[in-house]
Structures are given as structure tokens and as C-alpha cells.
Design a protein around this nucleic acid. Structure first.
Length: 467
DNA sequence: AAGTAATTCAACCGCCCTGGC
DNA sequence: TGCCAGGGCGGTTGAATTACT
């Protein structure tokens, strides 16, 4: 394509802006607004092209710009967002008020990249450099796409910026942004987007395939309204619950989060009635669950892992010790303490999920030693904010740009309408009554559990079978 | 103090998308 | 349907600044 330069054509001024030019532009836009950018320079008496004026305004003269160095908090958020959004600087900038895409891009290229590399993390993939160098990233992606199970690599085992963040989080002066939470609406969206499908495996066992929200689930929520044209996502679902910047994600959830902090095992049970499970639940009655065979579902599951890092999920790292991430029924607290397979777990599922006896539905990496080391502190000491940030951060595959638009657009609208998931009432009040309710319900649940879950999963399978 | 290397960051470039004609 | 202009984005450049020797 031929070089097109409006500045060259019109012999306009280029390079750095003088204070006089700044003043002219500022005065003009303050008084009249920018309107059509191409006409701004003429009206403002500038020998610049419209593009140049626009850039100068957006990156420097805009009154709402936040000057100065980036805080650690902002850097962490950028890393997290980059792990999800990749180099979509404008979308990342939309989540950082007062910061421009250019500024963030510069920070990333000059500073954050270097920091991540120093920590042994590949800034492009958000995976350990060792894996990237040995080509494990590619193989893990392709393998994961083809296998029925999610490999550890697919979830990004080993050290990465998560550890960097953990280190940062541990600093007393670092307060994680509220942007690490999902609104109740989004939690509903997530839960509603869980997809279950009944199958039978080669040995005749009943299988339940589960998939979750797509990358779009996040992109839509991390994308600001100013950039609709370039977003790689297709249009939002017609009944999309929310399209809002990340800053708002904490809306309405603080109470729930406080409650969860006291009893982190309670949240999911509260909010996902149909996933309730109790200690007497006979997991043998459950259909065996299997991660999806379809490669297109892989990113969905990965997204789901992030999505489900809702405050309810206190210890996503808990689980078994086998090589794959497995779904397990078990005691959440046991998992928290030692990371081992729990004794009452005989429901083995393939993917990072566990239904705990107290109703907790937990997800996580059964990973490795790297995480086991962190596990104790994460369970005992970390806030749920950090859990969310950990998950959000931990999206190596999403960064690759190879997994976009993997699910049908109808996913959300279809699922929502059919979903049995509910979010009702205050989590706080529920928490207060949780133990009493649990006692009262336990006997009933003992009797009903098997039937209940069989029915629920049948419902789910029916509802989601269309996918 | 001077020279050089490294880093930062404002601005430009080229491309893509959209809407108007 | 095709062309064009405007707007917007991500990648890149290069001048200015800072760090190092």
C-alpha cells in the first residue's frame, strides 16, 4: 500500500508539539469540542493534521489524564488484563482511568516486559520462559485442543506472573483493586454459561461434559464502550446482562465477599442452588464428568476457571495429586490444608473442579509444587481479591490469540434462558444462617441428594445439551 | 566532566473498519 | 458495489533523558 501521509500531502508540521500549539489546541477543544478531527487544525489555526491533533489531545492534553508513574496496583492490573486481552491496549486502557493506551503500551514494552522476563515469565504467553523456550507452550495448546482432558500446561502450571503478583500482594502497601471482582450479574452470567452435556464414554460410563463461558464473557466485561469497532469479539449477545468497564465489577458484591471471607466455603452453595452438595451426597450417583473433547471448548473451560474464581472459591489450587487436573468430590478444607485428594472423594471428574461436602464447588490447578508451596498461604492469608486476580492472570492460552470466538454467539442467551442457576438473596444473611440451615437441610438432603442431583444434572444436560 | 549505552515516551506510520456517497 | 475520507488501533521510530563507565 502506498504511503499515505496527510501531513506530507499538506506539508504540515510534524514532530513534537510546542507549548503554543498545545495551547491553541486546548483552547479550541475546550471551547468547541473536537467534532471532526480533520477540521480541528484548520479551525484552531494549527499546521497539523487532524490525526496528530487527535493524538495530542488523547495522549497529552485531555484534562482527565492521570500523570505520573504507574502504581504497583495499576501495573498488576495491566498484567492481569494483558493476560486476558493481549495487546489490546485501548481496551486495557479503558480499565485504567486517566491512562492512555499509548502510555500503557510504553510501560508494557519498556518496563513490565522486562520485569516479567526477570521473573522467568514470558510476557507474551504469560507462561514460564522455560516452557516457552522448549516449545511446550505450543504443544500444550495443541495437545489440549485435541485431548479430552486438560493438561497442566493448558492451565499454565509452574511459576509465572502469578507468583510475581503474590509477592506484590504480600506487600502491605499493595491493595488490590476492587476491579478484581465480578458483579453478581456477571457471576450469574458465568454460572448460566456453564454448559453440561451428557455423554457416554467408550466404556459405557456416563459422562458429563462441562464447558463454561467463552473468552467473550471476559472481553465484553473488560471492554469499554469507546471501542466497539475494533473489538475482536462479535457483537454482544442481545440479552447481554452487562457491558461495563471493569471498574464497576465490584458493584453489589462487597457484602457477599465479606461474608465469603468469613466462610469462604459458603458462597457457591448460596448462589448456585443446583450445585449444592452435602456430606452425605453419594457421589456414585453422579454421572462421571469429563472435560470436553471439543477443542473449541478448551478456551471456554479456561475462561470458566477464571470466571469461577469468584469469591466462593477459596482454594482453587486444592485437589488431587494426579497428573491431570481432576474434578473431585471432597472436603474443601482438607484440600486446603494439604492439597491432597480427600478421603471422601470418589467422584472423579476431569477438570479442575471439586464439589465439597459442605457445598463448596471449587476449581483449581492440581499442580505443581510451585503452587503447593503457595497454597498454604493462599488459603490462610490471601484475600479473595487476590484469588480473582490470580485466576484472571492465569490465562496463558487466551493470550495467544488463537482461541478467540470459539463458542457460538448464542451461548449466553440460550443458556441464560434455560439455566437453573440462581442468585438469590444476600450472601451475608445467608451466611449467618448457613449453619442452621445446613443442619436443617442435611437430613432432607440425605434423603434427596441422590435424586436431586440426578435430576439436576439431567436438567442441566437437557438444558445445555443443545450446545 | 565527557562519552556512551540504555531507557523512556511522544509521535508517527500503516492498516483496518465504518459510514457516506 | 466500489470508492473515499475519517476515526481508531497496534506497532514502530527516534529524540530526549537517565544511567553507567
Amino acid at each position: 500500500m502506498g504511503r499515505h501521509s496527510c501531513c506530507f500531502k499538506q506539508k504540515l508540521r510534524k514532530g513534537l508539539w510546542s507549548p503554543e500549539e498545545d495551547e491553541k489546541l486546548l483552547k479550541h477543544i475546550t471551547k468547541y469540542g473536537h467534532g471532526c478531527w480533520s477540521s480541528v487544525p484548520k479551525q484552531a489555526g494549527l499546521q497539523r493534521c487532524g490525526k496528530s491533533c487527535r493524538l495530542r489531545w488523547i495522549n497529552y492534553l485531555r484534562p482527565d489524564l492521570k500523570r505520573g508513574t504507574f502504581s504497583q496496583q495499576e501495573e498488576n492490573l495491566i498484567i492481569e488484563l494483558h493476560s486476558v486481552l493481549g495487546n489490546r491496549w485501548s481496551q486495557i486502557a479503558a480499565q485504567l482511568p486517566g491512562r492512555t493506551d499509548n502510555e500503557i503500551k510504553n510501560l508494557w514494552n519498556s518496563c513490565i516486559k522486562k520485569k516479567l522476563r526477570q521473573r522467568g515469565i514470558d510476557p507474551n504467553t504469560h507462561k514460564p520462559l522455560s516452557e516457552v523456550e522448549t516449545g511446550e507452550v505450543n504443544t500444550s495448546i495443541s495437545n489440549s485442543s485435541n485431548n479430552n482432558t486438560l493438561s497442566e500446561e493448558a492451565f499454565g502450571g509452574g511459576p509465572n506472573e502469578l507468583n510475581l503478583l503474590r509477592a506484590e500482594i504480600s506487600k502491605p502497601d499493595v491493595v488490590l483493586t476492587q476491579a478484581h471482582t465480578l458483579s453478581v450479574e456477571d457471576q450469574f452470567s458465568f454460572q448460566a454459561s456453564l454448559s453440561f452435556k451428557a455423554n457416554t464414554d467408550s466404556t459405557g460410563n456416563n459422562l458429563m461434559t462441562c464447558s463454561g463461558p467463552t473468552k467473550e464473557f471476559f472481553l465484553e466485561r473488560f471492554t469499554n464502550s469507546h471501542d466497539n469497532s475494533k473489538t475482536p469479539t462479535t457483537s454482544a449477545p442481545s440479552d447481554s446482562i452487562g457491558y461495563f468497564p471493569l471498574q464497576r465489577l465490584n458493584d453489589g458484591l462487597s457484602d457477599a465477599r465479606d461474608s465469603v471471607n468469613q466462610d469462604p466455603t459458603s458462597w457457591f452453595n448460596q448462589n448456585t442452588r443446583n450445585f449444592e452438595m452435602n456430606s452425605e451426597f453419594d457421589s456414585n450417583s453422579m454421572p462421571r464428568m469429563q472435560s470436553p473433547a471439543s477443542s473449541s471448548i478448551l478456551p471456554s473451560l479456561i475462561d470458566m476457571r477464571h470466571s469461577i474464581s469468584l469469591p466462593s472459591l477459596r482454594n482453587p489450587w486444592a485437589g488431587g495429586t494426579n497428573a491431570f487436573h481432576s474434578w473431585k468430590a471432597g472436603n474443601h478444607k482438607h484440600n486446603s490444608s494439604n492439597g491432597d485428594v480427600t478421603t471422601n472423594s470418589n467422584m472423579e471428574l476431569q477438570s479442575n473442579c471439586s464439589f465439597a461436602e459442605n457445598g463448596t464447588f471449587s476449581w483449581g490447578l492440581e499442580d505443581g509444587k510451585e503452587y503447593k508451596e503457595n497454597q498454604n498461604t493462599s488459603v490462610e492469608g490471601e484475600t479473595d481479591d487476590s484469588k480473582w486476580s490470580d485466576y484472571l492472570l492465569y490465562t496463558p492460552l487466551l493470550t495467544s490469540g488463537t482461541v478467540q470466538n470459539s463458542a457460538p454467539q448464542s451461548l449466553f442467551s440460550d443458556i441464560k434462558s434455560e439455566s437453573q442457576f440462581t442468585i438469590e438473596g444476600s450472601c451475608t444473611s445467608w451466611h449467618q444462617n448457613h449453619h442452621l440451615q445446613q443442619q436443617q437441610q442435611q437430613q432432607q438432603q440425605q434423603l434427596q441428594a441422590q435424586d436431586l442431583y440426578t435430576k439436576d444434572f439431567q436438567k442441566l444436560a437437557t438444558a445445555f445439551g443443545q450446545f
